[in-house]
Amino acid sequence: MEFVDNFWFQLVLKLAGILGVVLTGALVVIYAELKIGSHMQTRIGPYYAGGRWGWAQPLADGLKFLQKEDLSPTGSDRTVYGFAPYVVMMATIAVFVVVPFGPDMVGANLDLGAFYLLAISSLSVLGVLMAGWSSANKYSLIGGLRAAAQLIAYELPLVLAVVAVVIQAGTMSLNGIVDAQQQTWFTIGSFNISAPFIIQGQILGFAIFMIAAVAELSRIPFDMPIAESELTMGYLTEYSGIRFTMFFLGEYASMISLSAIAATLYLGGYAVPGVHGNIVNLLGPGVLLTKVAILVFVIIWIRWTWPRLREDQLQTLAWTWLIPLALLNIAIVSIFKVVF
């Protein structure tokens, strides 16, 4: 069993695992969005592709995109324009490095895991800004600038919500945070009760995190950077073919990554109550992905239900509601941490 501990072997295994989760996960989420959205709209949705239930529709769409011509508009900055989708994709994939699927099933158990993922997840906006700037299109430019404004407004509540979790857990390592949620919260007689942070008073933080996450994903009701009815497709207007596919996959992959983070921080991550030892490595991914699926469903549900906010209303929401509430949340969590 010596080769299992080999660095290169582990690296290949982890890369394959993360890429597999990201790409197949994104395809599954795209399919889920097609189907769930259809049923919410009293439609059937994909039906024929793949034989049954249209399961192969995302693959067919992907193949179609691959065949399309990769256009870049006249006057665009070719280098930046071509590189932007990969920045978005890279930032999305890099988040998965620290997401723990089990006690040992993690790309890298960084001590500063929470810090790392906040830093890396805001990188994708850089790609969006690059796309908006280099497209040589006014709609793209407005879309890119809106994305930047949105980032500033929403990164703060996101960070503040995570800070409260870090205070409660006493660690920034994501594995540590999962472990902290398995510690005994209180005891009734001889029963040790442990609960995920959402039950341990973090419901406000969870709500703030999810709102900020949807804004970060720029999905309805916070899809102003794309805003089809206003900006045609915002920063995506000029993209076609494989580069558009990258953006598209990136959006759905980051849905998974942000849901996975939320599940890890607030919903107990991979942990199964009452189960310890090596078996958790086996069950963990399934448990985490179930929680991710629930959160992804909620995000899809929101998208097909609500209209879009206006840019200034989003800023108002972020600065006058979410940030003060997040600070309040931190204060409450800190007081409880010190007193009890």
């Binding site: 709209q41 009293t42 309805i220 009701p221 899809d223 998208r303 097909w304 239900t305 209209p307 879009r308």
Partner: peptide, 9 residues
């Protein structure tokens, strides 16, 4: 306004 579902109904 960005709400896609009322269209279908």
């Amino acid at each position: 306004l960005g709400a896609t579902t009322p269209l279908m109904h």
